[in-house]
């Protein structure tokens, strides 16, 4: 479906000068520096997958999306999507994809949503029967019925995002690129958008590539994540895989009947201790949780135990540190 091999892209960026003197100097001479936005990016995606494409700001996420949607031409590398090379056969290729830029609107601001939809139908030359069936399906799954007659500027952000996604599916694309689809949405709208993405993925087999900063999006949607930083591919695999590979640290919090004797568990570091409660940090590579619990219960009368894994955000920060990218 999608094969990307060895993508490279370098930008030349003018150095912004600071200070008045520098600004005057820049009138005559300007310095540039090269920024490697993509360094040897390779992956492949099967039909029907939902892939989360994540990384910090400036990691190269949107550059990759731009290359894959035919906007940018890379310096070198291969990208084949449904047999097309996006930047070479732009017009025939983009008929098969849908793109949503979360921060920008593709709908006409001052007219009812349905008018925008009809114009898009004409732009993509969608046959009338196909358009009607797509429209009714989308209206139903996204609950758009009441929104269609309202000018876009009067919609809330969440409503607008639903319409945006619907708009990019009117021409039944096989691949959908979502660039930060939940940015700025409230919790309810986020859930609605996620559910919708799942539905169209399941029912129509649309391949979804999604960039986001919201890890709960990824946890809810993506069975697979591709993590990039500073233009390099850092991880490609399942979220659990990422967890088990990097998240070996667990925090165990134990409540017990008052005991004034300090605890000592071999292989676990004590984070805090009081006569009623203690916190340990363990490395699951060195000791298994059950051993810690066994040692604990032999020393105190346990009332409650909680085991916390590392949140995914921390995990990614840790990953950046490991690659010295922060």
């Amino acid at each position: 479906m999608i094969t990307v091999r060895g993508l490279h892209k370098t930008f030349r960026v003018a150095k912004r000068s600071t200070g008045l003197g520098q600004a005057v100097k820049a009138l005559f001479h300007r310095e540039y520096k090269a920024i490697e936005a993509l360094k040897d990016i390779s992956f492949s995606i099967e039909p029907g997958e939902i892939v989360g494409y994540i990384g910090p700001n400036g990691a190269g996420k949107s550059t990759t999306i731009k290359v894959m949607s035919g906007i940018l031409v890379p310096d070198s590398g291969i990208c084949s999507i449904m047999g097309y090379t996006p930047w070479e056969q732009r017009v025939s290729y983009v008929k098969h994809i849908g793109v949503v830029f979360g921060q920008r609107s593709q709908l006409w601001w001052d007219v009812p949503v349905i008018d925008s939809f009809e114009l898009l139908r004409d732009i993509y030359k969608v046959p009338e029967t196909e358009y009607q069936s797509n429209l009714s399906l989308l209206t139903e799954t996204l609950d758009l019925q009441e929104l269609l007659g309202i000018p876009v500027r009067q919609l809330s952000l969440g409503q607008r995002m639903r319409c945006e996604i619907a708009a990019s599916l009117l021409h039944s694309p096989s691949v959908l690129f979502l660039d930060e689809p939940t940015i700025g949405l409230d919790a309810m709208s986020k859930i609605a958008v996620r559910r919708f993405i799942q539905t169209i993925n399941a029912e129509r087999g649309v391949t979804v590539i999604l960039t986001t900063h919201d890890m709960s999006d990824i946890e809810a949607l993506a069975s697979r994540i591709i993590l990039i930083g500073k233009g390099r591919l850092l991880h490609d695999g399942s979220l659990q895989g990422l967890r088990s590979q990097f998240s070996t640290r667990k925090v165990i919090t134990a409540d017990y009947r008052t005991c004034h004797r300090p605890l000592a568990i071999p292989g676990a570091a004590i984070l805090s201790w009081s006569p009623e409660r203690a916190q340990f940090s363990i490395n699951t590579g060195e000791i298994v949780v059950s051993e810690v619990l066994a040692a604990l219960s032999s020393q105190v009368e346990l009332l409650d135990v909680t085991i916390d894994g590392q949140p995914i955000e921390d995990l990614i920060i840790q990953l950046y540190k490991e690659h010295q990218l922060s």
Binding site: S69, S92, V94, V99, I123
Partner: peptide, 18 residues
């Protein structure tokens, strides 16, 4: 400036017309 030209490029029509 607003990046709207990207939108033009992901649509299957000529740039001038759009």
């Amino acid at each position: 400036g607003q990046g709207e030209f990207d939108r033009v490029l992901v649509r299957p029509r000529g740039t001038i017309l759009q």
